[in-house]
Lab assay of single mutants.
Amino acid sequence: EIHIRTNGEEQARKVYKMLAKRNYDVKIEQHNGQWVVTAS
């Protein structure tokens, strides 16, 4: 499982799309105001 911390919604969405293209199961979560993308 991969966790990627991003500094904002826009970046989180870019990372989300990139990983989704590679057939990862991707989730975006917010932790303490930080956007974290989780891929498995």
Results as ranks from 00 to 15, higher is better:
Y16M: 13
A39N: 04
E29M: 11
E10I: 09
I4K: 01
V37L: 04
H3A: 08
Y24K: 05
K27Q: 06
R22F: 14
I28N: 00
M18K: 06
V15K: 03
H31T: 09
E29N: 08
E29F: 15
A20V: 13
N32L: 07
G8Q: 11
T38S: 07
A12N: 00
A20W: 06
Q30K: 10
Q11V: 08
T38F: 07
K14S: 06
V26D: 00
V36Y: 12
V15P: 00
S40A: 06
V36M: 08
E10V: 10
V36E: 05
Q34T: 10
Q11S: 07
K14R: 12
N7W: 12
I2N: 02
Q30G: 04
V26A: 05
E10G: 09
Q34I: 14
K21C: 13
R5K: 10
Y24A: 05
Y16R: 05
W35T: 01
Q30T: 07
Y16N: 02
A20S: 10
R5S: 07
Q34P: 01
Y16P: 00
W35A: 01
Y24L: 08
V37W: 01
E1L: 14
I28P: 00
I4A: 01
R22M: 15
M18C: 15
H3L: 12
K21A: 15
R22I: 07
Y24W: 10
D25T: 13
K27E: 04
V15H: 03
N32V: 04
Y16G: 12
Q34E: 11
V26F: 01
V37D: 00
E29T: 12
E1A: 11
M18H: 10
I28S: 01
Q30V: 13
Y24M: 08
S40G: 06
M18V: 08
I2P: 03
W35V: 01
T38N: 03
G33D: 07
K21S: 12
E29H: 11
E29L: 09
A20G: 04
V36H: 09
R5L: 14
H3G: 03
Q34R: 07
T6L: 15
W35I: 02
S40N: 08
N23C: 12
I28E: 00
V37E: 00
V37R: 00
I28M: 08
V36K: 03
H31Y: 11
K21M: 12
G33R: 03
H3E: 11
A12Y: 01
H3V: 15
V26N: 00
R13A: 05
Y24I: 06
Q30S: 08
A12K: 01
R13H: 07
E9L: 15
K17I: 11
H3N: 09
K21I: 09
R22P: 03
A12T: 02
N23S: 07
Y16D: 02
T6A: 09
Q30C: 14
A39M: 10
R22T: 06
Q11E: 14
I28K: 01
N32G: 11
M18S: 07
M18Y: 15
I4F: 13
H31I: 14
H31A: 09
E29V: 11
K14G: 05
Q30N: 13
A20D: 04
L19G: 01
T6Q: 03
K14I: 11
E1I: 15
K14F: 09
K17H: 12
N23Q: 08
K17C: 14
T6I: 12
I4V: 07
H31L: 13
E1D: 09
I4Q: 02
G8Y: 14
H3F: 13
L19H: 01
Q30A: 06
E10A: 13
G8L: 12
R22H: 13
R5D: 04
K21W: 08
E1F: 15
M18E: 12
M18A: 12
V26T: 03
V15E: 02
A12H: 00
G33A: 04
R13Q: 09
E10L: 10
D25A: 11
Q34W: 14
H3T: 15
D25I: 14
D25V: 14
N23E: 06
V36Q: 05
N23G: 15
I4L: 05
I28W: 02
I2L: 08
E1V: 15
N7D: 11
Q30W: 09
H31R: 10
V36A: 04
L19A: 01
Y16S: 09
A39F: 13
V36F: 12
D25E: 11
E10W: 10
G8P: 02
Q11G: 05
K14Y: 12
E9V: 08
E29G: 07
V26Y: 01
K27N: 05
Q11L: 10
G33S: 05
V26I: 04
N7F: 09
G33H: 06
Y24H: 05
K14A: 11
G8H: 14
E9P: 11
Q11I: 11
V36D: 03
H3C: 15
K21V: 08
Y16K: 06
I28G: 00
E1S: 12
A20M: 13
K21Y: 09
E29D: 05
Y16Q: 08
R22A: 12
R13T: 05
Q34N: 07
A20R: 11
I2V: 06
N7L: 09
R5Q: 08
H31N: 09
R22N: 09
A39D: 02
K21E: 15
S40I: 12
A39K: 03
Q30E: 10
Q30H: 10
A39W: 12
N23W: 14
D25G: 05
I28V: 05
I4G: 01
R5H: 11
H3K: 14
T6G: 03
I4T: 02
Q34M: 13
K14P: 01
N32I: 03
V15T: 03
N7P: 06
T6H: 04
V37F: 01
K17S: 10
I28C: 04
R5P: 06
V37Q: 00
K17A: 14
E9M: 09
N7T: 10
G33F: 04
K27M: 06
K14H: 09
D25Y: 12
T38G: 02
S40D: 04
Q34Y: 15
Y16E: 05
M18W: 15
Q34F: 15
K17W: 12
M18G: 04
V37M: 01
V26H: 00
E10T: 09
H31C: 14
H31M: 11
G8A: 10
R5G: 04
D25F: 12
Y24T: 04
N32R: 06
K21Q: 13
N32H: 07
K21F: 08
R13L: 12
D25M: 12
Y24E: 03
L19Q: 01
Y24G: 03
K17D: 15
V37G: 00
G8N: 15
N32A: 08
R22L: 15
R5I: 15
Q34L: 09
I2D: 02
K27T: 07
N7V: 08
Q30P: 03
W35F: 05
G8T: 15
V37N: 00
Q34V: 13
K21G: 11
A20K: 14
I28A: 02
E9Q: 06
A12Q: 01
A12L: 02
N7Q: 10
L19V: 02
K14Q: 10
N23I: 03
T38M: 07
S40F: 12
K27V: 06
I28H: 00
A20P: 01
V26G: 02
H3Y: 15
Y16A: 15
W35D: 00
M18F: 13
G8S: 15
V37T: 00
H31P: 02
I2S: 02
A39L: 13
E1M: 13
D25S: 11
E29P: 00
R22Y: 14
R13D: 03
K14V: 07
Y24S: 04
N32E: 10
I2K: 03
N7A: 09
M18I: 11
V26W: 02
T6K: 04
Y16H: 05
N32P: 02
V15I: 15
A20I: 13
N32Q: 09
G8V: 13
G33Q: 05
I4H: 03
I4W: 07
H31W: 11
V36I: 13
N7K: 09
E29S: 11
H31D: 10
I4P: 01
Q34C: 11
S40T: 13
R22K: 11
I2A: 03
N7R: 11
A20Y: 07
K21T: 08
I2H: 05
E10Y: 08
H31F: 12
E10D: 09
A39Y: 14
